[in-house]
Computed example of a mutant assay.
Amino acid sequence: MWIEKYKPKSLGEVVGHEGLKSIVGKYIEQRDIPHFLFFGKPGTGKTLIAELVAKELLGGTNDNFIEMNASDDRTVEKVRKIVLNGIKHSTLNGKLRIILLDEADGLLVPAQEILRRPMEKSSKTRFIITANEVKSIIEAIKSRCMSFEFKGVNKEDMLRRLRFIRDNEHSTISDRELELIATNCNGDLRQAITELEKASMGDDNGAEIVKRYLQRG
């Protein structure tokens, strides 16, 4: 799948989010970060950047990295099992421990509330929390995090990336068809890459993509 093949391997390779990358990059240089809250609509790179921050801080090892997707289990019991039990143990090599709570707006309020104390008291643990709907995150968590709103990738940056992938894959999708994909994916680069792959693999190449998008307009 092209979305995996062209997945950025470092913060510098991420398309867009220049201000965020600059700020977060400075913390990584210092080998420490605050708790982060990344929020915004799906497909804007929240989880990707969270994982890259952990990778660059921890040197590519997963030993001090804990990840939980709140959409899988929203309960207090799950948070206690994965998060609270995880921070009881010392970190390896004295490094930070990074806990990624993905789609945390899916957590029940009591499950969010038990995060307050470990976020304050654990000197070696940093939380990176992602959410589609920031209003579903309790104030006690928001006040303990440095927050960044993720917006869609702008059209110029998206087209630049789509052209690179098209040319690298020797696809015959035209610039006009790329324009239609970029316009209709509304800043969601992940969706745009998937649409480009689908159009490139079809027998009619991009014709069906063009037809479908023109019908929408």
Rank of each mutant, 00 (worst) to 15 (best):
Leu57Cys: 07
Val76Trp: 03
Ile87Phe: 08
Ile66Leu: 14
Phe65Trp: 09
Gly45Thr: 08
Asp63Leu: 15
Ile66Ala: 12
Gly60Asp: 02
Glu56Leu: 01
Ile82Glu: 14
Arg80Ser: 09
Ala54Phe: 00
Glu51Ala: 06
Thr75Arg: 15
Thr47Lys: 07
Ala50Ile: 00
Lys88Gln: 14
Met68Cys: 06
Gly45Val: 08
Asp73Trp: 10
Ile87Ser: 04
Lys55Pro: 00
Asp72Asn: 13
Thr44Leu: 09
Val79His: 10
Arg80Asn: 10
Leu52Ala: 04
Val76Asp: 05
Val76Arg: 11
Arg80Trp: 08
Asp72Gln: 10
Ile82Asp: 11
Val79Trp: 08
Lys81Phe: 11
Ala54Ile: 00
Asp73Ser: 11
Leu52Arg: 04
Lys46His: 07
Ile82Gly: 10
Leu84Gly: 03
Pro42Trp: 00
His89Pro: 02
Val53Lys: 01
Asn85Ile: 12
Val76Asn: 05
Thr44Arg: 02
Asn62Leu: 10
Glu67Cys: 09
Asp72Thr: 09
Ala50Leu: 05
Lys81His: 13
Gly59Lys: 05
Thr75Cys: 06
Pro42Thr: 01
Thr47Arg: 04
Lys46Asn: 06
Ala54Lys: 00
Ser71Cys: 11
Lys55Thr: 01
Gly60Ile: 02
Lys78Ser: 12
Gly60Asn: 05
Glu51Leu: 13
Leu52Ile: 02
Asn85Thr: 14
Lys46Asp: 04
Glu56His: 00
Ile82Ala: 12
Ile82Tyr: 13
Lys55Ser: 07
Arg74Met: 04
Lys78Cys: 07
Ala50Asp: 04
Val83Leu: 10
Asn85Pro: 06
Lys81Leu: 13
Glu51Ile: 01
Val76Ala: 08
Leu84Phe: 09
Ala70Tyr: 06
Leu48Ala: 12
Leu48Val: 05
Ala70Met: 08
Glu67Arg: 12
Met68Tyr: 09
Ser90Leu: 14
Gly60Pro: 02
Val79Glu: 07
Asp72Met: 04
Glu56Val: 00
